[in-house]
Structures are given as structure tokens and as C-alpha cells.
Simulated scan of single mutants.
Amino acid sequence: MLGTGSAFAKTYFNTNALIYADHNTLLLDCGITAPLSLHQLGKPLSEIDAVLISHIHADHIGGMEELAFRMKFVHGRRPVLYIPEPLAQPLWDSSLKGGLLQDECPSLDDYFDVRLIRPGAKTELLPGLAVEPIQTAHIPNKNSYSFLFNATFFYSADLIFNPELLRNLVEERGCETIFHDCQLKPPGIVHTTLDELLSLPLPVQERIWLMHYDDTKPQYEGKTGVMRFVEQHRRYRF
């Protein structure tokens, strides 16, 4: 995990991740702190094969401008950008265009090999790694997606509590592991709170790892039931 913190955490980097599959590397979201976290891990940007974006907030796309410039002008590459189709135009028009637009680079395609993925459909991202984007609620009238990888690993990104979805993933679809955003103190408003996750059936809680938490996380150690915290700069195998 490149980071496990909330948008405003200072102790933890933004909740972004690297996924390794068959000697390839996918960057899952690229927030403001992603370039620094990669630097601290000694992971060169040039080793990233593809990027996957969940939604358009700075803690998830704030590092994309640096990634684009360095890939194009330092490494001479257009990395693959996987993005749910409804997010592609807003990513450029509402976020990246202001910094990246140049006479010779008038579009997102000048910086990335853009590959649109369809919500609800499985897409192979890398050899051995497939994803199903699931549209989920985060901000009213703003598209946001969670991801189900290889039908067994669910990554919430940012998600308002949806117990029906979580129960369906575990009870009907056989999901084995859930990395879920967790606002430690209520009210959640645009995130899921710890209290809400603690209300889930035990078989669902047993699969949940908590991420996207704030700087008070040490105060909640031992208070999360059977659920565990995802730790920054730690590698997990599933």
C-alpha cells in the first residue's frame, strides 16, 4: 500500500496502492502523495505499467499531473490509463487540463494510452489481473467506483455504507478479501464509519481490512472487532 490515510491525514499518505501481477505493476489511484510515497519506497515511475482511477478527488488523482509530465518528458512513455468510461472526460476537463494542456498536447490521449472500461463488466488489466468496476455512492451526482479484482478481492475506494453490497459480495459472490474505507469517527456522510462496519454480520467483518483512516488511528487499535487495519508501505498477498 502506497498510503492508507484519508484525504486530510498528515501521518499517512493518500490511500493509493500498487498491484503486482505476473511481473507487471498497476498503480491504483494516484493521489497528491503518490509520487512521494513511490520515491520513499524506491519505486521509479518508469516501472509502472498501468494506472486505474476510481474517482475524481485530489487524494485519488492529484498526482496524475506529475505522473503524466515525467512519463512523457523524462521517460518518453504514454502509460496505460484504465478508467471507467464516465470519468474520462471529467478527468481531463475538470482536473488535468489546466496543468497539462499545451499546444502540442491538447488532450488526455497525448499523455496516456487511455483505455475505457465499462462499469459492471470484467476487463483484463494485466496478465492474471481482471477487474469489474462497480458504481458506488460517494458524493451525490458524482461518479465513483469500487473495484472487484479477479472476483475475490474488493477494493472500496471511497464508499458510503452499503451493507447489501458487502453481504452480496461475501454471501453470493464468494469474495474473500475486502479493503474498505473507514471513517473512524461518525458521522460518515460520504464515507463508511467504523460503527457501521461493526454492525455487519461476523462472516463479512472477518474479510474486511480497514483503510482511508485519519491520524487518530492509533487510538482505535484493538477497537475494530475482528477487522484489521491495512498498514502503509506494507505488501499483502491475496
Rank of each mutant, 00 (worst) to 15 (best):
H55T: 08
I56F: 03
H60S: 10
H60E: 11
H60K: 09
M64F: 04
M64S: 09
M64K: 06
E65L: 11
E66C: 09
L67C: 06
A68F: 03
M71Q: 12
M71A: 10
G76E: 06
G76V: 11
G76C: 09
R77W: 01
R77K: 15
R77I: 13
R77L: 15
R78A: 12
R78G: 05
P79Y: 04
P79K: 11
V80S: 06
L81A: 11
L81Q: 11
Y82C: 11
P84S: 08
P86M: 14
L87T: 05
A88F: 01
Q89F: 14
P90K: 02
P90M: 13
S95F: 00
S95Q: 08
G98E: 07
G99L: 14
D103H: 08
E104H: 06
E104T: 06
C105K: 08
C105W: 08
P106R: 02
P106L: 12
P106F: 04
S107L: 13
L108S: 01
L108N: 03
D109Q: 14
D109L: 15
D110E: 11
Y111P: 00
Y111D: 04
F112K: 01
F112A: 03
F112D: 11
D113P: 01
D113S: 10
R115L: 04
L116N: 08
L116C: 03
I117R: 05
R118I: 13
R118K: 14
P119W: 01
P119D: 01
G120I: 14
G120P: 03
K122C: 07
K122I: 09
K122W: 00
E124R: 11
L126T: 02
P127S: 03
G128T: 02
